[in-house]
Design a protein around this nucleic acid. Structure first.
Lengths: 119, 119
DNA sequence: ATTTAACGATTACTGTTGTAAACTATAAAC
DNA sequence: GTTTATAGTTTACAACAGTAATCGTTAAAT
Protein backbone atom coordinates (compact mmCIF):
# COMPACT_ATOMS: atom_id res chain seq x y z
CA UNK A 1 0.00 0.00 0.00
CA UNK A 2 1.01 3.56 -0.73
CA UNK A 3 1.39 6.49 1.59
CA UNK A 4 -1.98 6.30 3.32
CA UNK A 5 -1.86 9.89 4.50
CA UNK A 6 -1.93 11.56 1.17
CA UNK A 7 -2.75 15.19 1.63
CA UNK A 8 -2.16 17.32 -1.45
CA UNK A 9 -0.31 20.59 -1.16
CA UNK A 10 -3.39 22.63 -1.94
CA UNK A 11 -5.32 20.79 0.74
CA UNK A 12 -2.75 21.34 3.43
CA UNK A 13 -3.75 24.91 4.39
CA UNK A 14 -7.22 23.57 5.11
CA UNK A 15 -5.86 20.78 7.26
CA UNK A 16 -3.80 23.25 9.21
CA UNK A 17 -6.87 25.28 10.07
CA UNK A 18 -8.81 22.17 11.05
CA UNK A 19 -5.94 20.92 13.18
CA UNK A 20 -5.76 24.19 15.00
CA UNK A 21 -9.50 24.75 15.27
CA UNK A 22 -11.42 21.50 15.36
CA UNK A 23 -15.16 21.34 14.83
CA UNK A 24 -15.62 24.46 12.82
CA UNK A 25 -18.16 24.71 10.04
CA UNK A 26 -17.00 25.08 6.48
CA UNK A 27 -17.56 28.85 6.30
CA UNK A 28 -15.77 29.25 9.60
CA UNK A 29 -12.78 27.36 8.26
CA UNK A 30 -12.83 29.44 5.14
CA UNK A 31 -12.50 32.62 7.18
CA UNK A 32 -8.96 31.59 8.01
CA UNK A 33 -8.07 31.08 4.38
CA UNK A 34 -7.94 32.97 1.18
CA UNK A 35 -8.51 32.00 -2.39
CA UNK A 36 -11.60 31.01 -4.28
CA UNK A 37 -14.47 29.69 -2.18
CA UNK A 38 -15.52 27.04 -4.68
CA UNK A 39 -12.01 25.73 -4.86
CA UNK A 40 -11.98 25.58 -1.09
CA UNK A 41 -15.23 23.64 -1.07
CA UNK A 42 -13.88 21.12 -3.53
CA UNK A 43 -10.72 20.60 -1.53
CA UNK A 44 -12.58 20.19 1.74
CA UNK A 45 -14.78 17.64 0.07
CA UNK A 46 -11.76 15.76 -1.20
CA UNK A 47 -10.27 15.68 2.25
CA UNK A 48 -13.46 14.10 3.54
CA UNK A 49 -13.51 11.69 0.60
CA UNK A 50 -9.97 10.54 1.26
CA UNK A 51 -10.59 10.06 4.94
CA UNK A 52 -8.37 12.80 6.26
CA UNK A 53 -11.28 14.78 7.66
CA UNK A 54 -14.62 13.74 9.04
CA UNK A 55 -17.81 15.73 9.08
CA UNK A 56 -20.49 15.70 11.75
CA UNK A 57 -23.91 16.82 10.65
CA UNK A 58 -25.48 19.78 12.38
CA UNK A 59 -28.50 19.90 10.13
CA UNK A 60 -29.27 19.03 6.53
CA UNK A 61 -27.33 22.05 5.42
CA UNK A 62 -24.32 22.24 7.68
CA UNK A 63 -21.54 20.15 9.14
CA UNK A 64 -18.68 20.56 11.54
CA UNK A 65 -15.35 19.27 10.37
CA UNK A 66 -12.50 17.73 12.26
CA UNK A 67 -9.34 15.85 11.42
CA UNK A 68 -9.03 12.12 11.28
CA UNK A 69 -5.36 12.21 10.44
CA UNK A 70 -3.47 14.04 13.17
CA UNK A 71 -0.88 16.65 12.43
CA UNK A 72 1.66 14.47 14.21
CA UNK A 73 0.93 11.54 12.02
CA UNK A 74 1.11 13.67 8.93
CA UNK A 75 4.36 15.31 9.97
CA UNK A 76 5.94 12.01 10.81
CA UNK A 77 5.00 10.63 7.45
CA UNK A 78 6.24 13.62 5.53
CA UNK A 79 9.47 13.55 7.46
CA UNK A 80 10.00 9.95 6.66
CA UNK A 81 9.23 10.50 3.01
CA UNK A 82 11.52 13.48 2.79
CA UNK A 83 14.39 11.69 4.47
CA UNK A 84 13.98 8.72 2.20
CA UNK A 85 13.50 10.65 -0.96
CA UNK A 86 16.15 13.31 -0.66
CA UNK A 87 18.75 11.68 1.57
CA UNK A 88 18.17 8.03 0.77
CA UNK A 89 17.07 7.49 4.33
CA UNK A 90 20.37 8.58 5.81
CA UNK A 91 20.00 10.76 8.92
CA UNK A 92 23.69 11.61 8.72
CA UNK A 93 23.44 12.93 5.21
CA UNK A 94 20.47 15.00 6.19
CA UNK A 95 22.07 16.53 9.24
CA UNK A 96 25.27 17.33 7.42
CA UNK A 97 23.28 19.03 4.77
CA UNK A 98 21.30 21.08 7.23
CA UNK A 99 24.49 22.28 8.79
CA UNK A 100 26.04 23.03 5.44
CA UNK A 101 22.98 24.97 4.37
CA UNK A 102 22.98 26.74 7.70
CA UNK A 103 19.58 25.42 8.51
CA UNK A 104 21.20 24.49 11.80
CA UNK A 105 23.44 26.95 13.57
CA UNK A 106 25.74 26.52 16.51
CA UNK A 107 23.17 28.23 18.71
CA UNK A 108 20.49 25.81 17.63
CA UNK A 109 22.72 22.92 18.55
CA UNK A 110 23.42 24.35 21.98
CA UNK A 111 19.76 24.90 22.67
CA UNK A 112 18.85 21.42 21.54
CA UNK A 113 21.63 19.92 23.60
CA UNK A 114 20.31 21.57 26.71
CA UNK A 115 16.81 20.39 25.97
CA UNK A 116 17.93 16.83 25.64
CA UNK A 117 20.05 17.04 28.76
CA UNK A 118 17.22 18.09 31.04
CA UNK A 119 15.19 14.94 30.64
CA UNK B 1 6.77 31.14 -10.94
CA UNK B 2 6.49 27.67 -9.47
CA UNK B 3 9.17 25.35 -8.26
CA UNK B 4 11.40 25.31 -11.32
CA UNK B 5 13.16 22.11 -10.35
CA UNK B 6 10.24 19.81 -10.54
CA UNK B 7 11.46 16.26 -10.54
CA UNK B 8 8.74 13.69 -9.99
CA UNK B 9 9.22 10.94 -7.45
CA UNK B 10 9.38 8.26 -10.10
CA UNK B 11 12.02 10.23 -11.96
CA UNK B 12 14.25 10.70 -8.96
CA UNK B 13 15.95 7.29 -9.04
CA UNK B 14 17.05 8.08 -12.56
CA UNK B 15 18.41 11.46 -11.53
CA UNK B 16 20.35 9.84 -8.73
CA UNK B 17 22.09 7.50 -11.14
CA UNK B 18 22.86 10.33 -13.53
CA UNK B 19 24.20 12.48 -10.71
CA UNK B 20 26.48 9.73 -9.59
CA UNK B 21 27.51 8.59 -13.05
CA UNK B 22 27.39 11.37 -15.60
CA UNK B 23 27.54 10.73 -19.32
CA UNK B 24 26.21 7.23 -19.40
CA UNK B 25 24.02 5.98 -22.19
CA UNK B 26 20.42 5.12 -21.52
CA UNK B 27 20.96 1.35 -21.27
CA UNK B 28 23.91 1.95 -18.97
CA UNK B 29 21.77 4.06 -16.68
CA UNK B 30 19.10 1.41 -16.72
CA UNK B 31 21.55 -1.17 -15.45
CA UNK B 32 21.53 0.62 -12.12
CA UNK B 33 17.77 0.54 -11.88
CA UNK B 34 14.96 -1.90 -11.82
CA UNK B 35 11.44 -1.77 -13.12
CA UNK B 36 10.00 -1.76 -16.58
CA UNK B 37 12.34 -0.59 -19.30
CA UNK B 38 9.67 1.24 -21.26
CA UNK B 39 8.64 3.14 -18.19
CA UNK B 40 12.25 4.04 -17.62
CA UNK B 41 12.56 5.31 -21.18
CA UNK B 42 9.50 7.49 -20.79
CA UNK B 43 10.77 8.97 -17.57
CA UNK B 44 14.21 9.68 -18.95
CA UNK B 45 12.55 11.38 -21.88
CA UNK B 46 10.47 13.50 -19.57
CA UNK B 47 13.53 14.54 -17.63
CA UNK B 48 15.09 15.73 -20.84
CA UNK B 49 11.85 17.45 -21.84
CA UNK B 50 11.63 19.34 -18.57
CA UNK B 51 15.24 20.42 -18.76
CA UNK B 52 16.57 18.46 -15.81
CA UNK B 53 18.79 16.31 -18.00
CA UNK B 54 20.55 16.97 -21.25
CA UNK B 55 21.48 14.47 -23.91
CA UNK B 56 24.55 14.55 -26.13
CA UNK B 57 24.30 12.61 -29.34
CA UNK B 58 26.77 9.83 -29.96
CA UNK B 59 25.22 8.67 -33.20
CA UNK B 60 21.73 8.64 -34.69
CA UNK B 61 20.73 5.91 -32.32
CA UNK B 62 22.38 6.73 -29.01
CA UNK B 63 22.95 9.54 -26.54
CA UNK B 64 24.85 10.17 -23.37
CA UNK B 65 22.89 11.78 -20.59
CA UNK B 66 23.96 14.17 -17.89
CA UNK B 67 22.26 16.38 -15.34
CA UNK B 68 21.44 20.01 -15.87
CA UNK B 69 19.98 20.42 -12.41
CA UNK B 70 22.57 19.54 -9.79
CA UNK B 71 21.82 17.37 -6.84
CA UNK B 72 22.70 20.27 -4.57
CA UNK B 73 20.20 22.54 -6.23
CA UNK B 74 17.55 19.87 -6.06
CA UNK B 75 18.24 19.09 -2.42
CA UNK B 76 18.18 22.72 -1.46
CA UNK B 77 14.86 23.20 -3.14
CA UNK B 78 13.29 20.16 -1.60
CA UNK B 79 14.53 21.18 1.78
CA UNK B 80 13.05 24.60 1.43
CA UNK B 81 9.75 23.18 0.26
CA UNK B 82 9.63 20.66 3.06
CA UNK B 83 10.43 23.23 5.71
CA UNK B 84 7.77 25.55 4.39
CA UNK B 85 5.13 22.94 3.85
CA UNK B 86 5.42 20.90 7.00
CA UNK B 87 6.79 23.39 9.50
CA UNK B 88 5.49 26.64 8.08
CA UNK B 89 9.05 27.70 7.41
CA UNK B 90 10.08 27.54 11.06
CA UNK B 91 13.52 26.01 11.58
CA UNK B 92 12.84 25.78 15.30
CA UNK B 93 9.69 23.75 14.83
CA UNK B 94 11.54 21.45 12.52
CA UNK B 95 14.49 20.88 14.79
CA UNK B 96 12.29 20.30 17.80
CA UNK B 97 10.37 17.77 15.87
CA UNK B 98 13.45 15.95 14.69
CA UNK B 99 14.62 15.70 18.27
CA UNK B 100 11.23 14.54 19.44
CA UNK B 101 11.08 11.91 16.73
CA UNK B 102 14.62 10.90 17.59
CA UNK B 103 15.79 11.72 14.14
CA UNK B 104 18.50 13.65 15.99
CA UNK B 105 20.21 12.08 18.97
CA UNK B 106 22.54 13.53 21.55
CA UNK B 107 25.46 11.87 19.78
CA UNK B 108 24.49 13.49 16.52
CA UNK B 109 24.45 16.86 18.18
CA UNK B 110 27.87 16.34 19.69
CA UNK B 111 29.33 15.30 16.38
CA UNK B 112 27.80 18.26 14.60
CA UNK B 113 29.00 20.63 17.29
CA UNK B 114 32.56 19.47 16.81
CA UNK B 115 32.28 19.83 13.08
CA UNK B 116 31.10 23.39 13.37
CA UNK B 117 33.74 24.24 15.93
CA UNK B 118 36.66 23.22 13.73
CA UNK B 119 36.07 25.76 11.03
C1' DA C 1 23.72 -7.81 -47.83
C1' DT C 2 20.29 -9.11 -44.74
C1' DT C 3 18.43 -9.80 -40.41
C1' DT C 4 17.64 -8.32 -35.84
C1' DA C 5 17.95 -6.27 -31.35
C1' DA C 6 17.00 -2.25 -29.25
C1' DC C 7 17.26 3.17 -28.82
C1' DG C 8 14.53 6.66 -28.92
C1' DA C 9 9.84 8.61 -30.29
C1' DT C 10 4.98 8.32 -30.31
C1' DT C 11 0.77 7.13 -28.37
C1' DA C 12 -2.14 5.67 -24.50
C1' DC C 13 -4.63 5.40 -20.45
C1' DT C 14 -5.75 5.97 -15.46
C1' DG C 15 -5.51 8.58 -11.34
C1' DT C 16 -4.47 12.85 -8.92
C1' DT C 17 -4.08 17.73 -8.39
C1' DG C 18 -5.35 22.53 -8.99
C1' DT C 19 -8.85 25.30 -10.10
C1' DA C 20 -13.59 26.68 -10.49
C1' DA C 21 -18.49 27.07 -12.30
C1' DA C 22 -23.20 25.36 -11.99
C1' DC C 23 -26.75 23.18 -9.56
C1' DT C 24 -29.79 21.81 -5.63
C1' DA C 25 -31.94 22.13 -1.52
C1' DT C 26 -32.82 24.35 2.72
C1' DA C 27 -32.03 27.41 6.93
C1' DA C 28 -32.77 31.79 7.82
C1' DA C 29 -34.57 36.34 6.95
C1' DC C 30 -38.47 39.14 6.27
C1' DG D 1 -45.42 31.91 3.67
C1' DT D 2 -42.23 33.46 0.38
C1' DT D 3 -37.81 34.91 -0.82
C1' DT D 4 -32.96 34.50 -0.67
C1' DA D 5 -28.35 33.51 0.52
C1' DT D 6 -25.48 29.77 0.73
C1' DA D 7 -23.73 24.84 2.32
C1' DG D 8 -22.87 21.16 0.15
C1' DT D 9 -22.95 18.29 -4.41
C1' DT D 10 -22.04 17.59 -9.14
C1' DT D 11 -19.67 18.37 -13.17
C1' DA D 12 -15.61 20.17 -15.75
C1' DC D 13 -11.23 20.49 -17.49
C1' DA D 14 -6.24 20.95 -18.08
C1' DA D 15 -1.75 19.55 -16.34
C1' DC D 16 1.05 16.23 -14.37
C1' DA D 17 2.36 11.64 -12.73
C1' DG D 18 2.79 6.68 -13.06
C1' DT D 19 2.90 3.09 -16.00
C1' DA D 20 3.59 0.84 -20.32
C1' DA D 21 2.89 -0.82 -25.27
C1' DT D 22 3.97 0.02 -30.03
C1' DC D 23 6.44 1.79 -33.87
C1' DG D 24 10.15 3.30 -36.83
C1' DT D 25 14.92 3.40 -37.67
C1' DT D 26 19.46 2.00 -37.49
C1' DA D 27 23.85 0.04 -35.42
C1' DA D 28 25.46 -4.17 -35.02
C1' DA D 29 25.54 -9.09 -35.80
C1' DT D 30 25.95 -12.78 -39.05
Amino acid sequence: MKNKTNIADSELPIMKVIWEHPNLTSPEIFEYLDGNKNTFKTLLQRLVAKGAVKSAEINARAYRYSAIISREEYTKNEQKGFLQKVFDGSREKMLLNFVKEEKITKEDLQKLMEMIEEE
